[in-house]
Simulated scan of single mutants.
Amino acid sequence: MTQQDRPAPRGRVLIVAGSDSGGGAGIQADIKSVTALGGFAMTAITALTAQNTRGVHGVHGIPVDFVVQQMRVVLDDLGADAVKTGMMGLPDVIEAVADALADLAPDVPLVVDPVMMAKGGHALLDPSAEATLRTRLVPRATVLTPNAPEAEALTGRPIATVADLEEAGRALLDMGPRAVLMKGGHLEGETVTDLLIGPDGVVRMDAPRIASTATHGTGCTLASALACGIAQGLPLEQAVSRARAYVRCAMETAPGFGSGHGPMNHGHTVAPFSG
């Protein structure tokens, strides 16, 4: 395939999230995922982290006005077919991002990944921001993508079973998002069950658990892959299925870097350019 034969990116995704210096999660994973799935990634960075596979070693917040400025200049010029939010950090960041979305992109689909904790256990959302996330971003979401601990924090419900996962998902749906993708990876068992919950019912998606330490950035990657599918016009269930398949293959072909929770292979869909 020549360079002229290669398709142009399709589906513009603005990602509002934090940077991961280790490259496995955050903005870096988001950009890789959208690009690998044929979309065009744009960013508004909310925080810088000094991070590797062993954990988060430092966080430097970006001034709120500059977060909004990044969003504004991108949306004013390039536009977006979907927006994905990740690490927000503080209440004032959430407030500003929600206001900017209402002003600049009121009709653009929004995937909200309610990032609260890094894989190594470092808090990425101040506890004071949970209520703001619940009231400002969750109701605006086209799709909300919590894992079980995040859903527990947002609903106040303990989650230990798939039935609990469904009940919490329905409670989150009542908060206003159009759909909720409940991720079951934190539950025990050889099968991982995710639930796509919407006003028309529940779609259950099962897959065998992969025994792997290459789990860093799975949530960021899934949400961005989903946002890319939505930006490209895929029906929601198809966009979710493609995103889950992308993450699974990225885990199965992980490069094995680092001594902690390692990164995935985000580039598994990309063939090297040979001329």
Results as ranks from 00 to 15, higher is better:
residue 210 I to S: 06
residue 73 V to T: 13
residue 65 D to G: 15
residue 201 G to R: 09
residue 34 V to R: 01
residue 211 A to G: 13
residue 167 E to L: 14
residue 12 R to L: 09
residue 190 E to H: 15
residue 195 L to R: 06
residue 36 A to S: 15
residue 178 R to P: 13
residue 104 L to S: 07
residue 239 A to S: 02
residue 18 G to F: 03
residue 222 L to K: 08
residue 21 S to L: 03
residue 213 T to K: 15
residue 83 V to Y: 06
residue 47 A to E: 00
residue 89 G to Q: 01
residue 71 M to T: 05
residue 159 I to K: 06
residue 19 S to G: 05
residue 131 A to T: 11
residue 273 F to R: 13
residue 164 D to E: 07
residue 167 E to S: 14
residue 192 V to D: 09
residue 157 R to G: 00
residue 129 A to S: 02
residue 97 V to M: 05
residue 265 N to Q: 10
residue 182 M to N: 04
residue 148 A to R: 10
residue 115 V to H: 04
residue 191 T to M: 11
residue 188 E to M: 10
residue 102 A to Q: 13
residue 159 I to H: 05
residue 214 A to P: 10
residue 90 L to Y: 10
residue 84 K to H: 10
residue 119 K to L: 14
residue 76 D to Y: 00
residue 46 T to E: 03
residue 136 R to H: 12
residue 188 E to S: 14
residue 155 T to F: 09
residue 214 A to C: 08
residue 99 D to I: 04
residue 232 Q to H: 09
residue 123 A to S: 13
residue 15 I to K: 12
residue 197 I to S: 01
residue 88 M to P: 01
residue 43 T to S: 12
residue 60 H to K: 12
residue 76 D to G: 02
residue 81 D to S: 00
residue 66 F to P: 07
residue 219 G to I: 01
residue 180 V to A: 08
residue 265 N to C: 13
residue 188 E to Y: 05
residue 92 D to F: 04
residue 167 E to Q: 14
residue 106 P to Q: 11
residue 97 V to T: 11
residue 248 R to T: 13
residue 237 E to V: 03
residue 28 Q to G: 02
